[in-house]
Amino acid sequence: MSDSVSDYEFNHKHLLGLADYSKEDILYVLDQARSFREILDRPVPKVPTLRDKTIVNLFYENSTRTRLSFELAQKRMGADVVNFSSSNSSTKKGESLKDTIRNISSMKIDMVVVRHESPGVPHFLTQCVDAAILNAGDGAHEHPTQALLDMFTMQQIHQNLKGKKIAIIGDIAYSRVVRSNMIGLKKLGAEVVLCGPKTLMPPFVKEYGVEVSYDLEETLAWCDVAMALRIQLERQGNATELFPSLREYHERFGIKLEHLDKYPDFKIMHPGPINRGVEMESEVADSERAVILDQVTNGVAVRMAVLYLLSGGNRV
């Protein structure tokens, strides 16, 4: 049995981060997501829930998966959707973010999905406009819908995450995915171990109540789920590289085929996009132990649930 919550009073206007959501909030969202996940398997996977809503997707950073996933979720619920993307930071040339969002908001927008390289931008937008704000990733701060879809996927494997052993492997310091996951997983009672080179661990990360390991073998032997994070290749080649080479990284922290035989129990997740041959061998990514594509499908359902709840749908 999963820890489900019925007749729950969900009272959030925004989803800025999982730091603001309680355990009950998270379980409720995941519960709602299960209904939407069923809809996705129907012959016509559409519902009219957001028929009267207008949503803008504001993407200041490149994104394929997250943006498509949000857009699909919105369209499957019948919302009117507009997309704005810019790789240029608005403050560097032309209009400020505040002006951009106030202008867009004047066109009568109900919800804003935002991704930005600066932590805190979703919070900033709540001060600029009335619309509901959904954080689709703010710098290395939070990426709450990713963590929700990760937890949803873990629930498909283990139902109740209490006491489950989750390893997160790789570039911890620069990952918003890991921050939201640590917050959410700890709230649901999971045990979390972070594994990767010491230089990719942020200072004081143990404040989250997680453990740190520099030993992949030990970590894989322990865990129920191993979530590998993307190594941000674009950071390599800078003057201050944080680890010596991709080769050494893969040798020490890459998940290999041999691990699947050696440790037969753990499942493999990855928020994508994968660098094959870095975080894991290709065969590992394509193996039956990997639930990476399930994560992607679940992402649409989880985002539908969040959009539904923040549109006030459950309060009607």
Binding site: P119, G120, P203
Partner: peptide, 15 residues
């Protein structure tokens, strides 16, 4: 400042 709070907020810190 680089510390617990910068880690929590995902902001690059100045130690």
């Amino acid at each position: 400042n680089e510390g617990k709070v910068s880690t929590r907020l995902g902001l690059d810190g100045t130690p």
